[in-house]
Design a protein around this nucleic acid. Structure first.
Length: 419
RNA sequence: GGAGGGGUGGCAGAGCGGUCAAAUGCAACGGACUGUAAAUCCGUCGACUUCGGUCUACGAAAGUUCAAAUCUUUCCCCCUCCA
């Protein structure tokens, strides 16, 4: 399995994206053929429009698609407009909520934005294209679906699928609606094959069951071999899925998370994860990755900075990445207030209680929390711990036209007086 | 349709008339140590507070009681088994 011919699979293997494939050799041969002839292979990545932005947890398949495109192939991004109305049982115990039309449209728009940060959309041969399975499901007729698709599925087999089996074993409810999800997703795959000649699906390993549902349907109904390819689930050092920072998701879209926070997320990756993350979250050549991950102790911080910069660059652009980096350097290495920190403008700084200032910055959820943190020496004003919880800001606290507030060691923000 | 079981804080899960803002675990947050790491240790973890307290909370509503997460009634939702 280490001797792939295709560029794409070699990259996947080398960078740690390879987890499982429905048919290594077949997929490799197919891709190789496409790469050699210059005719792009078509592959797709599905996602549910349950939110209006993707987050770091979704990046792994996104990056796979990015490489797929770089290898000259054509990525399709499928949003499950139809399947969102059902809910995917994979790895979940609870039924997902249904969405109304307006939210759905809003979410789809947001997803498109997330996708376009990693993939190039357009009309070219290898340009990415967005598709919605609502287009082919909205007019489908239940009886004909049962007849045309349902006949190819064995319930016996479906019951052995992980997503179903675990639900049954744990005696958790699973509705018939959800049970049908894999048929729908299998049908998606075949539809994309029929209309776009798409023969590959790329996803996280939790989608394996849904992928094989599609490849099997393809084989039985259309007599074509479709390929499925999955990534491992990337976890942080605590074995948890990537993508949460301070309990909040690390969003791809900038209106949900500042570039500075995005940068900081990668800056704060654990030592053990640096190599893995460089491979997965950046485009850096492997030589560079190997050099960086060999760094030890304090030096590994250099690798983390590069990781954070590169990862931010892909998602937010070079200018934003630079700004985030500068802010971080100023804030952490020079102890100054970096320009890109979260900032709020207030009508008048004079007399504003510090507690309220923290509340407005969103660093604390309540005044009580702010008081507690002050008791614990967790809140700082211009880098000096606040001792009096009733302290009110005054003109003397204004440095360079702003007041720097910090929560803990990592969260910093600025208050400016609106002019 | 019948018979049982259950709905508690971000999650899991105790409590089953007062001592309950509710054990414990996880997650989260602050501090110490470091390298904006990990591990460890200490502390915090409903809201408001003039730090005395006050208010809102244990699916929803009504009731019993000096007193209810705990008892009663109705309603809503979920699960299991039978048909």
């Amino acid at each position: 399995m280490s001797n792939f011919k295709s560029l794409f699979l070699n990259i996947m293997l080398e960078r740690g994206f390879y987890n499982q494939c429905t048919n290594d050799e077949g997929f490799d041969a197919y891709l190789y053929e496409c790469e050699k002839s210059g005719k792009p292979a078509v592959g797709y990545l599905g996602s549910d429009p349950t939110g209006d932005s993707l987050h770091v947890g979704h990046i792994v398949p996104l990056m796979m698609m990015r490489w797929f495109q770089k290898c000259g192939h054509k990525p399709l991004t499928l949003v499950g407009g139809a399947t969102a109305r059902i809910g995917d049982p994979s790895g979940k115990d609870k039924l997902r909520p249904f969405l109304d039309e307006e939210t759905l449209q809003h979410n789809i728009k947001g997803l498109k934005k997330s996708f376009s940060k990693f993939l190039k959309f357009g009309d070219g041969a290898s340009d990415a294209q967005m598709v919605d399975n609502w287009d082919w499901f909205k007019d489908i007729n239940y009886l004909s679906f049962l007849r045309d698709i349902g006949t190819y599925y064995s319930v016996n087999r479906m019951l052995t699928m992980d997503s179903v089996k675990t639900r049954l074993e744990r005696e958790q409810p699973m509705s018939f609606l959800e049970f049908n999800y894999m048929l729908l997703q299998g049908y998606d795959f075949c539809q994309l094959y029929n209309t776009y000649g798409c023969r590959a699906q790329i996803a996280g390993s939790d989608q394996w069951g849904n992928i094989t549902s599609g490849t099997e349907l393809g084989r039985r109904k259309y007599d074509v071999e479709l390929f499925g390819f999955t990534s491992p689930i990337i976890t942080d050092s605590n074995g948890k899925k990537m993508g949460k920072s301070e309990g909040n998701a690390v969003w791809i879209n900038e209106e949900k998370l500042s570039s500075y926070d995005y940068y900081q997320y990668f800056r704060n990756i654990g030592d053990a994860e640096v190599g893995k993350c460089l491979r997965i979250y950046t485009d850096l050549p492997m030589d560079e990755v190997r050099r960086l991950e060999a760094l030890k102790d304090k030096e590994i911080n250099e690798a983390k900075k590069i990781l954070a910069f590169e990862a931010t660059k892909i998602c937010r652009g070079e200018a934003e990445a630079l700004a985030a980096q500068n802010t971080a350097v100023q804030t952490f290495e020079q102890g100054e207030a970096g320009g890109n920190l979260p900032t709020i403008d207030v009508p008048s700084i004079e007399g504003l209680p510090v507690i309220d200032a923290f509340l407005q910055l969103g660093f604390v959820a309540s005044k009580g929390e702010a008081r507690r943190l002050i008791k614990q020496a967790g809140l700082k004003l211009n880098d000096a711990p606040i001792v009096d919880e009733n302290y009110k800001l005054s003109a003397a606290d204004i440095v360079n036209g702003q007041v720097k507030l910090s929560q803990g060691k990592k969260k910093h923000g600025l208050i400016k007086q609106a002019s």
